[in-house]
Amino acid sequence: MSERQDHATSFLVILVILSFALMTLDIRSSGGGAVGTLRTGVQSVFAPVQKLATTIVDPVFDLVDGIANAAGLRDANAQLQQRIQELEAKVDELSSVEAELESLRNALGLVPADQNIATVAARVIARGDSFDASFQIDRGSSQGVLAGMPVVDDTGALVGTVIDVTSDSATVVPIISPSADGVRVKTPAQQIGVVLGRGANELDLELLDTTEPVAVGDLLKTSGSERYPGGIKVAKVAEDVRPEANRIVATATPLADFPRLDIVLVLQWTFTGTVEETTTTTSTTTTSLPDSTSTTGGDG
């Protein structure tokens, strides 16, 4: 063994020990402290470069997507035109019903958890890989984004949570990541459970104290917790499962299209101490969740 290779071995040992020390420190400090400051600093340096690179490559990806989906888009367009006509007729009918519902809500003092939450539209500027599903967005604390805020896609489906914020960028951990915390959800039959990320585009659903089965296609929405406001659509049940010992374990398919995420909305929502209650703030954008896509502001 040459002297130079001995030096390389020494370097290897030192750096591997240092790496393990950093991992332990990072986990023990839960991403805060000096490690958090370092993360913020490096992300601040790379965010402008990633934004610039995204601006350059986005048109290329859009062009390729457009070519690949041209035939499908024509069919979709025809279907949508027909659907618009049907919906316009229904809107007239519903407007009077909506006014009545609003007055009844006011009378009962109910605030729908999934309405009128201020949002910040953001573009995905960098993505992780198979071993790290987190991604970066081009909005940060300067635009009102804070760690812990929920993130949804442009259809209102839950995407994940902001974990790190710099002045002009933020890191989001998606709900499909095994590292993400579980999401408390509610089934159409009002069963309460938790969905957990598997890493692939799948979620594990677990319902406790239940006697009702779940069926394919059952829509799961957030039930309201300290992490997410209630009423955000999360996933659909992917299999028929009957309870065993009052417990159901099933697979669910997330509604957000994670591989193709481009624009997301950060909900400027903070937990106020009461489940199902939301904080409505004045911001650049407001959107109605979960089905509306009325987004303005941002550069997305």
């Binding site: 290779q5 390389a8 071995t9 370097f11 290897l12 750096l15 591997v16 240092l18 790496s19 393990f20 020390a21 950093l22 991992m23 420190l25 990072d26 986990i27 490690v35 370092l38 993360r39 490096v42 992300q43 790379f46 960098a126 992780g128 071993f131 790290d132 987190s134 970066q136 974990i163 790190d164 890191t171 951990v173 990541s177 590292s179």
Partner: peptide, 26 residues
């Protein structure tokens, strides 16, 4: 840098790429 830009524990990819570089050199 990869660790700092992602959500993996700081030091995880550093350790892996240190080993990758060392094995390449050897």
């Amino acid at each position: 840098i990869l660790d700092l830009l992602g959500s993996t524990p700081l030091g995880l990819r550093s350790m892996v790429l240190t080993v990758v570089a060392f094995v390449t050199v050897r």
